[in-house]
Simulated assay, not measured.
Amino acid sequence: MNVLAFADTPYYEPVYTEKKIDMVFLLGDIDYPVIRQIHRDYKEKCPILGVLGNHDGPDFFEDTSITDIHGKVLEINGVTIAGFGGSPVYNKRKYCQYEEHEVKTFVDTVETVDFFLAHSNPVVDWYTSINPSHAGFQSFNDYIQRAQPKHFFHGHLHEHYSYQIASTQLHAVYPYKYFSF
């Protein structure tokens, strides 16, 4: 399976690959015009699934073929995918900021999936002192330890790297990355 993932993308750079893209993942904080361009480029080619980030508007996926997977578990082409957008609460803005208990309520209902899509990160030692909005959700860590999804994708940190928690491969995406599984 070939996946193209985008996160925290302020500009669009066409991604060229000779391989067929099977799914596109949007991990939040992607500028509105960029979302529209990704939709135009991939809507006829493959499913596009996404979650919104803490800087996105509630209407960013409207009038597109993008499936908002926030708070859902779906099966597409034999692959199970769950998602949770937004970040921890850090200011008075009400949209796409969540309390820890809200994340826990959702992830406690999710069994093992192939792909979990999130905007925010799990709590990781090297990011706990950055700022409250990037502290991550402990409930993601608890879910990963309990259910061990195959892959957990997130954005939000404006860095690209992969790491592992238990048997789950985590992928921090910025601004985009091609994956082949």
Rank of each mutant, 00 (worst) to 15 (best):
E100C: 05
S180A: 14
D56F: 08
G28C: 09
E159N: 15
R146L: 00
G57P: 08
S139N: 01
G50F: 03
V110I: 01
P14W: 08
N141R: 06
D41G: 04
Q164I: 06
F137W: 05
Q169P: 04
F61R: 03
H119G: 03
V51H: 00
N54A: 03
Y32S: 07
G78A: 00
G28H: 09
A147C: 07
M1S: 11
S162N: 04
P132T: 13
T17F: 06
Y174G: 02
F115N: 07
N91R: 03
E102C: 03
S65D: 11
E102L: 02
E13T: 14
R36I: 00
L74P: 04
N2R: 07
Y11L: 13
D142G: 05
G28P: 07
V51W: 05
F61E: 00
P10Y: 08
D108H: 08
K150D: 13
F181N: 11
H156M: 04
E18T: 13
A166C: 10
Y42C: 02
L27S: 09
I144G: 00
Q169E: 10
H101K: 12
E102Y: 00
F179A: 12
D108W: 02
I76D: 04
Y95V: 12
C96A: 11
K19M: 14
V110K: 05
N2S: 04
N141G: 00
R40A: 15
E102H: 02
V3N: 14
S162V: 03
D59S: 11
K92N: 15
I30N: 06
R146A: 04
V124P: 00
F137K: 00
D29W: 03
V89E: 07
V123N: 00
K72G: 10
F6Y: 15
I66R: 05
E102R: 05
S120I: 01
P10G: 10
H154L: 10
V173L: 01
Q164D: 11
T9Q: 09
D41E: 11
H39Q: 14
T128R: 13
P10C: 08
K94M: 10
V73T: 14
A147G: 01
Q97N: 10
T168W: 09
F116I: 10
P122D: 06
S87L: 01
N91G: 07
L170Q: 11
Q138P: 03
A166F: 08
I38H: 15
R93M: 06
N141E: 06
Q37A: 06
V34N: 15
L49V: 12
N77V: 06
H158K: 15
H101M: 10
V107M: 00
F179T: 14
H70W: 03
V79C: 02
G136R: 08
V3T: 15
Y12M: 08
F116T: 10
V34F: 09
F181D: 13
Y32K: 10
F61T: 03
E62W: 13
T109S: 14
H70Q: 08
H160M: 11
P47Y: 05
T67K: 04
F116Y: 10
K20C: 05
I130F: 14
K150Q: 12
G155I: 12
I21L: 09
D22W: 09
V123L: 07
V107E: 01
N77G: 12
K19W: 11
H160L: 05
D114M: 12
V113K: 09
Q145W: 07
G28A: 10
V15C: 15
V51P: 02
E62N: 15
K92Y: 12
F106S: 04
Y11H: 15
V79F: 04
D142Y: 00
K94G: 05
H101W: 12
S180F: 14
D59T: 12
